[in-house]
């Protein structure tokens, strides 16, 4: 039967992604539409939009229509020796920025929790790249390592409000703003240079990989730089070099994320369509010991690409 002609681009992509993840040994994770509201209140900053649709269940509990899947997977997972690899294809409910009203968004993603090592990080990144290629022809995966950024800020004693503002400026590649913060923090010219390099070092791995050593200012950043290099080199060996961009403007909230973080782009869609990273901090906050990495693919903008896959 010819399903292709019936299915929308969104549906075709979702199904293709599911079979891709299944092929890599990920099991489907199904969840109910509702979770207790409490789960989301406690981890409010983790959510992309801060509003949640709530209602009172028949037994009086305050429930929410899920705005996110990751939190549920963490909550329901168990710490163990091996790796838990799951994928999901769920509708989530978020406030759309334009209309300020709730919207249903189809989201596909994977989560990998447990004994995460470099091989599993690399695999997740490779899957992110493969996912992007399912969506469009010309794709880019911007990769950063949050421990590099965090290590640099810690070394220079930048924390609190200043750190928050600085990460916002890094995310916007705003050199003027960064200079202002460095001045406020009383950094030396040399230290300011290192922070500005977080913006300047941006581009294809074959161009910038060798310049990353400039961030090896302490043990934490040295380890992180090596980790990033190893992962990117492996992906280069597998032939993804031209689709990778090292870019430290990829900053998820440092409170929840650590390690490798990435955003995926497809030419023709003005926002990132894929976003993910390691989130050991969030696991710890929710009482889990394991490490974790995952990403989500946002399918609500795909109509902009037209129907052909």
């Amino acid at each position: 039967m010819d399903f292709q002609s019936v299915l929308s681009k969104e549906e075709v992509v979702a199904l293709t992604l599911r079979s891709l993840y299944a092929k890599f040994g990920y099991a489907q994770y199904k969840m109910s539409k509702f979770e207790e509201y409490d789960l989301y209140v406690r981890n409010k900053d983790f959510l992309v939009s801060d509003s949640v649709i709530t209602f009172t269940d028949t037994d009086g509990r305050l429930m929410a229509l899920k705005p996110d899947v990751t939190l549920s997977i963490i909550k329901n997972g168990k710490d163990g020796d091996g790796l838990m690899k799951v994928y999901y294809n769920e509708n989530v409910y978020r406030v759309s920025k334009g209309t300020r009203s709730f919207k249903e968004i189809m989201q596909v993603g994977i989560e990998c929790q447990g004994a995460i090592d470099q091989a599993s990080v690399t695999e997740v990144l490779e899957l992110a790249l493969k996912s992007l290629e399912v969506i469009g022809k010309n794709v880019a995966l911007a990769v950063s390592h949050l421990d590099v950024i965090k290590g640099v800020l810690d070394e220079y004693g930048i924390n609190g409000t200043l750190a928050k503002e600085l990460t916002r400026y890094l995310g916007a590649k705003n050199r003027g703003g960064i200079l202002k913060i460095c001045e406020q923090a009383g950094l030396t010219a040399e230290q300011t240079e290192v922070i500005l390099n977080l913006v300047n070092v941006c581009g294809a791995p074959n161009k910038v990989l060798s310049t990353l050593d400039a961030f090896k200012i302490n043990d934490a950043t040295s380890i992180a730089v090596e980790e990033l290099k190893e992962v990117v080199k492996t992906l280069e060996d597998r032939g993804y070099g031209d689709r990778l961009v090292i870019d430290f403007s990829v900053i998820n909230t440092l409170k929840y994320y650590n390690g490798v973080a990435f955003n995926g782009f497809v030419e023709g869609i003005p926002q990132s369509v894929l976003s993910g990273g390691e989130y050991d901090n969030l696991m710890k906050k929710m009482g889990r010991k394991s490490k974790a990495i995952g990403f989500a693919v946002y399918l609500d903008e795909l109509f902009k690409l037209g129907k052909e896959v």
């Binding site: 870019d247 403007s249 497809v266 030419e267």
Partner: peptide, 8 residues
């Protein structure tokens, strides 16, 4: 942000 990735 997306345009920058392709026309950087």
């Amino acid at each position: 942000k997306a345009g920058y990735k392709f026309k950087g």
